[in-house]
Design a protein around this nucleic acid. Structure first.
Length: 817
RNA sequence: GCCCGGGUGGCGAAAUUGGCAGACGCGCAUCACUUAAGAUGAUGUGCCGCAAGGCUUGUGGGUUCGAGUCCCACCCCGGGCACCA
């Protein structure tokens, strides 16, 4: 009987859906399991084979858990707000919600076609007002707890997208999305105080089962540095300069101070600065170059001394000059540093160029005249001389009345966008009351329909042009007021979507507390590496906050996080519509079947590694399934007929391998193990039904449709008795109770795996010379005797006596001559 | 510059953690079936060599009876961070 995958796949997908086989149960007594992948952005480019990789991976894990007896939640939805849809609307005039509808329909059809065991009943869409009502509600909670505020800030303005970007969205001075230039603009923006959670975000990481590189990236991003703030009095007037340093122990070597060119004090001191024109020229110069150029690698240090301005080094009492230089950033630390050229590379370089004194105060392990940034004992440091630098950090700070201080690189999250396709920020601006939150009962603030989606030339959102929507009464004083026209960034909806899945249809709360308690936290979350410093950090912050205000049951939302590698186009380029190298799953499913596509995607290489698409690769998967099918249809016999011991051992080894490999996402080797089993079945062997049933079950997570069909043939065949060949019956449809996907996951029998014999490796001088099969537990002398009968071994020994023999029981013997 | 990955046949890749390097698959070759092609099946396939044998996991050194795996130095590729004080 031919393997008609199209018919089989359609049939089972329908049956599974009809029986609600994959719907999670909120009230089950079974242990819960929550697996999650990053919900897709339904782009107009359509779904490509790369999208499917994480879905298939998590599907395999979810299916295995179900078979292991868990009550599994494996949901999906759409991260539907976002720029590409809006840009498409600008270009075509088609409303974003219509485009979104069309795109999600396509994505849904395509994802369904691979037969993932998703609970479609809980499908969500972040651009649906029933959903974003709660995103807005959460914003109001941030506002209520002083974690949302509006501030005049320099934002990163993308010239091409016409949108303000969060710092996280600027990569190498360019817009992360479109790659064009970003310039600094000042604008009043809503901000979320993620910095208040810096320490919690860092602490929380420790207990989580996240990939090491993910943790490292988050740690780097938060960028904690511990040091001290020290005050330097100025000779001129009452002002002083506070610097931040991680090395207060080196203060005796501080020979000058440096301010960022845009530091406030430069303006305050203007009257005292003797070379003001020169200083102003330098300020203008630094303003004119982009941030990217300013920090460019190998850039020579520049700077200007503030003529006539002197500070007093509080440790030495020396009078030291004050400079401005662009190697000091206004937003780092206090925007001012004490320069210790002998012990800091940058200061060293600067001091050499401008011939400033270099005073060594830490014993160095390098040549004199070089810069030493390591630790050591203090020299020429007054009462601290001889103390270790580590010890001196605290002691010096205390002595000088400085403050121990922790700085973070992490900056507050710019939460405003002046764009259309996002959640309106639920705030009303009243001339007399200020920023007034929209009362919770008036949520959602629905995004109004507009004619023109283009951002306005003045940089305001297109919403600002909808007068009828903007003009409202102030909820507080009832006077005339206006709505906030900024919308939220596309990271908003995805910051809490995993919570909504617990109770996606709730009209009275973002989710019912009991249901959250039943499902949270996410047991296993898989997504892309590209979201590690953005989405993953934001959503952890969001959840930590909700936990603090008592809205969610766990502090951390995700127990375990893994990342998949991208699938690249042939040749290794990134897949994109503009490059025209996108591989769609549709044609492949038609030609080879969803199961073959699934198996190939999992087989092509390690799950966490990027890999280029090979159009021929799917043939191997397809052939494998054909072979499985043929065996299943023609060679299954009743248990009484035969029990091939070798094959039984092989199967149990395969069960062990597949069980373990799924847990480490080593899907490629799991499939290879199953291929070895099928090869082991040869072309003649009859397979007893009980063996085959176990194999079909371990295959089920990978190739769910063909496994279901074969399994159903078995159960129906079993109830009759031993017919050698399965009759050409119509496609069987049985109740979900007997689905292979609810059958118990097989366990292997350890006794069957340990074989009675082993291959003894024979080496001469560490070189492999042959093997011999021996019973397990054989002793050294016996092994030696047998090994010495081997012709090749004798030839290698060349009549010489071995002076030493290394014998590893049940493994190897090595003669050394 | 710093921090993570990684470098193995023509290609994608395995390697029970120090014990037969190249499993599994793609591709290729030969054969069978076929009028033929395709599909399928069988056999072979790291490199040099007719063979015996030798060589082989980015490079160079080391530890070890034995190294893809451990140690030291270096070279390339991918990712992240970066005048972060």
């Amino acid at each position: 009987m031919k393997y008609t995958f199209t018919a089989i796949e359609k049939k089972w997908q329908k049956e599974w859906e009809r029986h609600g086989l994959y719907e999670a149960n909120d009230r089950s007594k079974k242990k819960k399991w929550y697996s999650l992948f990053e919900f897709p952005y339904p782009s107009g480019d359509g779904l490509h084979v790369g999208h499917l990789r994480p879905y298939i991976g998590m599907d395999i894990i979810s299916r295995k858990r179900r078979m292991e007896g868990y009550n599994v939640l494996f949901p999906i939805g759409w991260d539907a707000f976002g720029l590409p849809t809006e840009n498409y609307a600008i270009k075509t005039g088609i409303a974003p919600h219509i485009v979104t509808k069309k795109n999600t329909d396509t994505f849904r059809r395509q994802i369904k076609s691979i037969g993932a065991s998703l609970d479609w009943d809980r499908e969500i869409n972040t651009s649906d007002s029933k959903y974003y009502r709660w995103t807005q509600w959460m914003f109001l909670q941030f506002l209520k707890h002083d974690l949302a505020y509006k501030a005049e800030i320099a934002i990163n303005w993308c010239l091409s997208c016409k949108i303000g970007l969060a710092n996280e969205e600027v990569v190498g001075g360019k817009c992360e999305r479109c790659g064009s230039d970003v310039e600094k603009r000042t604008k009043k923006q809503w901000m979320l105080k993620i910095t208040a959670y810096a320490e919690k975000l860092l602490d929380g990481l420790e207990k989580l089962d996240f990939l090491k590189e993910i943790k490292t990236q988050q740690i780097n991003w938060i960028g904690k540095s511990e040091g001290a703030e020290l005050k330097f009095a100025l000779e001129n007037g009452d002002e002083s300069i506070t610097v931040f340093t991680t090395r207060p122990d080196t203060i005796f070597g501080a020979t000058y101070l440096v301010l960022a060119p845009e530091h406030n004090l430069v303006y305050k001191l203007a009257l005292h600065i003797k070379n003001l024109p020169e200083v102003e020229a330098y300020q203008n110069f630094t303003r004119s170059i982009s941030e990217q150029d300013r920090v460019a690698e190998g850039k020579e240090k520049t700077g200007v001394v503030l003529g006539g301005i002197f500070a007093i080094n509080p440790a030495t009492g020396n009078r030291i000059p004050v400079w401005i230089a662009d190697y000091v950033m206004a937003h780092v630390g206090t925007g001012a540093i004490m320069a210790v050229p002998a012990h800091d590379e940058r200061d060293f370089e600067f001091a050499k160029k401008f011939q400033l004194p270099i005073v060594q105060v830490i014993k160095s392990e390098t040549v004199v005249g070089e810069c030493w940034t390591g630790e050591g004992s203090l020299i020429d440091s007054g009462g601290f001389t001889g103390m270790s630098s580590l010890e001196a950090r605290r002691a010096v700070t205390k002595f000088l009345g400085g403050k121990l201080k922790t700085h973070y690189k992490l900056r507050d999250w710019v939460f405003s966008r002046q764009r259309y396709w996002g959640e309106p920020i639920p705030v009303i601006i009243c001339a007399s009351c200020g920023y007034v939150p929209v009362p919770e009962k008036n949520l959602p603030v629905v995004l109004p329909k507009v004619k023109n989606y283009k951002p306005r030339e003045d940089g305001e959102s297109p919403l600002a042009s909808v007068a009828s929507w903007v003009k409202v009464k102030c909820p507080k004083c009832k006077g005339p007021a206006e709505r906030e026209t900024d919308t939220m960034p596309n990271w908003a909806g995805s910051s809490w979507y995993f919570l909504r899945y617990a109770d996606s249809k709730n009209k009275h709360a973002f989710a019912d507390t009991k249901k959250l308690e039943a499902w949270m936290p996410v047991d296993w979350y898989n997504g892309g590496m590209e979201h590690v410093t953005l989405h993953l950090l934001y959503s952890r912050f969001w959840n930590l906050f909700l936990y603090d205000i008592g809205e969610v049951p766990t502090a951390e939302p995700y127990k375990k996080r893994t990342a998949h590698g991208l699938i690249l186009a042939e040749g290794g380029a990134k897949m994109s519509k503009s490059k025209g190298n996108v591989v769609s799953p549709d044609g492949l499913i038609k030609e080879f079947g969803a199961d073959a596509l699934r198996v190939y995607e999992m087989f092509m290489g390690p799950f966490d590694q990027a890999i280029a698409w090979d159009p021929r690769g799917i043939l191997g998967a397809s052939r494998f399934l054909e072979r499985v099918w043929n065996i299943g249809m023609t060679r299954i016999v009743s248990d009484s007929e035969s029990a091939d011991k070798e094959l039984t051992t092989l199967l149990h080894k395969t069960i062990k391998k597949v069980s373990e490999d799924i847990e480490t996402m080593s899907f490629n080797t799991a499939i290879s193990a199953m291929m070895i089993f099928i090869n082991g079945c040869g072309s003649e062997k009859k397979i007893p039904v009980s063996l085959w049933s176990l194999f079909v079950r371990i295959l089920a997570p990978f190739a769910p449709h063909v496994a279901e069909e074969l399994y159903q043939k078995l159960t129906t065949k079993n109830s009759r008795q031993k017919t050698r060949k399965i009759s050409r019956s119509k496609l069987v449809v049985v109740s979900s109770k007997s689905s292979v996907h609810l059958a118990p996951w097989p366990s292997f029998n350890p006794k069957l795996i340990t074989e009675e014999t082993f291959e003894l490796i024979i080496q001469v001088n560490g070189k492999f010379r042959g093997t011999v099969t021996l019973p397990r537990g054989v002793g050294e002398s016996e092994a030696k005797e047998i090994a010495l009968k081997d012709e090749k071994v004798l030839r290698a020994l060349d009549g010489k006596q071995s002076k030493k023999v290394v014998f590893v029981p049940d493994r190897l013997i090595n003669f050394i001559i």
